[in-house]
Amino acid sequence: MTQPQTEPTANQTGAEPIIIARDVEKWYDNNFHVLKGVSMTVTKGEVVVVMGPSGSGKSTFIRTFNALEPYQKGTIEIDGIQLSHDLKNIDAIRREVGMVFQQFNLFPHLTVLQNVTLAPIWVRRWSKSKAEEVAMQLLDRVGILSQANKFPGQLSGGQQQRVAIARALAMQPKVMLFDEPTSALDPEMVREVLDVMRTLAGSGMTMVCVTHEVGFAREVADRVVLMADGMLVEDSKPDEFFTNPKSDRTKKFLSQILH
C-alpha cells in the first residue's frame, strides 16, 4: 500500500499551509531554554516526521500545537486560528488537532467504545447513536471492532495504541500529532500501529510525527526535520535527509541511530 510520494513539498509550491509556527521560544521554570526560536510550516495533507536526540525538545514543540505546553515567545497558527492564551481559541484548536501519546493514555475506567465516543458526545455534542456509528467505523478501520466493549486494560499495547488513534480521529481533526507512538510497544506490535498510520497518511491527513522509525519516515514522510538543542537544524525530503543531509548535526545523529 505504498503511496508514491511524487507531489513536491510545500515550500516549493506554496500550497495552503495549515500549521504555521514562527520563532517559538519556550522556557521551563523560567530558566531552562527548551525551544530557541523554532519555525515550521506544514501544508494540508503533508506528513512531517520530527527526529532528534532525546531531550532536544521534540515533544515540547509538538505539544505547543495543541496548547498542552504554553510558550513565551513567537506565534502559532493552526488552520487560520491564532493560538493565543485566549481560552476560546485553545478550545477551538484542540478540537481541530488530534494527538496520540507514547503511553496511549486511554481512559482505563471506560470501555473502548466509550473512550472513542466520549469527546464527540461531550465536545462536539453529537447524539450517542451518531457518535457510536462513527466510532464503530473508526474501530473497524484500525482493526479493533471486535474489542469495542472491552476495557483498555484487556488489550495489548498495539491494540491500545490503535484505539488511541481511533479516539483522536473520532473528533474529525484536521491535523494529527504523534509523539513517539511506537516507542512503548513490543517490537512485534510496532508494525500494526505503523500500518494504521500509513493508511491515515494515504487518506490525506496532515500529520506531524515524532518517531525514530526510519522505514516509516522514508516511505511515508514528505519532509523529515531534525531537532537538536531546541532548534530545527535540518528540514529535507526523506531521501535527502537520510542519504545526503545538509547539516553536520544530522550526520552525527544518523550515525548514532543507523549504527
Binding site: 478550545d91 484542540r94 488537532v97 488530534g98 469527546a119 465536545v123 483522536a168 473528533m171
Partner: peptide, 9 residues
C-alpha cells in the same frame, strides 16, 4: 492531558 487534547474543558 489526553482529555484536554480531545478538546474537553
Amino acid at each position: 492531558e489526553a482529555s484536554k487534547a480531545l478538546g474537553m474543558n
